[in-house]
Design a protein around this nucleic acid. Structure first.
Lengths: 158, 158
DNA sequence: CAATCTGTAACAAGATAGGTTACGTGTCTT
DNA sequence: AAGACACGTAACCTATCTTGTTACAGATTG
């Protein structure tokens, strides 16, 4: 595995769901993300627990937004997927005995904490609606260039 | 594997080498780091290539600093170990076709780039001597509380 | 020549996100 | 009530990357 892409994927799919007029199944979503329906259910379970989406079982079931995209920030989603580690670097051991190592980790930790604070602050102040607006500026018709066919497929079956 | 600890480890060992009056073997260093001599040679090869340390083969050989700690920044070492990825999160694919996904990754990428710039700026302005000074403030005698025995061992054999 | 060290290849271990299969459970349609 | 549909979840495998380990070749000292 390379990098944790759950945040990116969830933002992506939430915008598509907002454009969707009806519930989307895990199978439909998995095709948009190029992955598996189980992976979708697994990742979106966190978003459901936090109240950002709803899921319905049974015939005609699937996923739908539980609030507007302007009411969900990137930080909300980051937390909903379980606050995975942001950094790929870090200390060798958690509580080193060696005081030199402690000094090294303290200095590195300061820099990492600063960067993390900045990143989370950006996450906190950006809503998913902001990202959707970026997309709308590039595609005024609001039609997805890739997943339009999936929307149409849903339309035909509904 | 959890997180890449090479940067932390190299800073740690360079400060100990600065306190060392003679060359340290990979075996000695590996005991300080709680790891293996091969891992030490592997990681320190980058520092040697960049001219921060020298290595001598054969009997009596080992590793020594090639310049003062005030002449080496954290950024130098980060680059010397091969600029490993800083973040554990990122996009799902490198060049998504979907414009919604592109908008998501662009917004996330902006935030990550900002955080990375801040982190690397900290790395650039902090020398290893700065960290050593932090240690000296806590241990005015300059004696390591853990690895002092290794220094003594070297002393006995030299 | 023997002992000591580095240099490096080769492979296993450990961790984590992601992919896949299988099956249970709830819900709507007929 | 039966069957199709869709989520919920466990279990297991895969891919990737740092780290750990073994093995051996080459260099240097005495």
């Amino acid at each position: 595995m390379r990098r944790d892409s759950r945040l990116s994927r969830m933002l992506h799919v939430l915008i598509h769901m907002d454009r969707h007029y009806k519930r989307a199944t895990s199978e439909t979503i998995s095709k948009m993300l190029g992955t598996n329906a189980v992976v979708v259910r697994r990742t979106m379970a966190g978003l459901r627990d936090f109240g950002y989406v709803r899921s319905e079982q049974g015939h005609g079931g699937g996923w739908e937004l539980a609030r507007g995209l302007d009411q969900i920030t990137l930080l909300d989603i980051y937390e909903a997927i379980g606050k995975p580690p942001l950094f790929a670097i870090g200390p060798s051991v958690d509580q080193p005995e060696c005081l030199v190592e402690q000094a090294v980790d303290a200095k590195l930790g300061d820099a990492l904490k600063e960067a993390e604070a900045l990143l989370l602050e950006r996450f906190r102040t950006v809503t998913i609606a902001d990202i959707a607006a970026d997309f709308d500026r590039r595609m005024p018709e609001g039609q997805c260039n890739v997943h339009g066919n999936i929307h149409a497929e849903q339309s035909a079956s509904g």
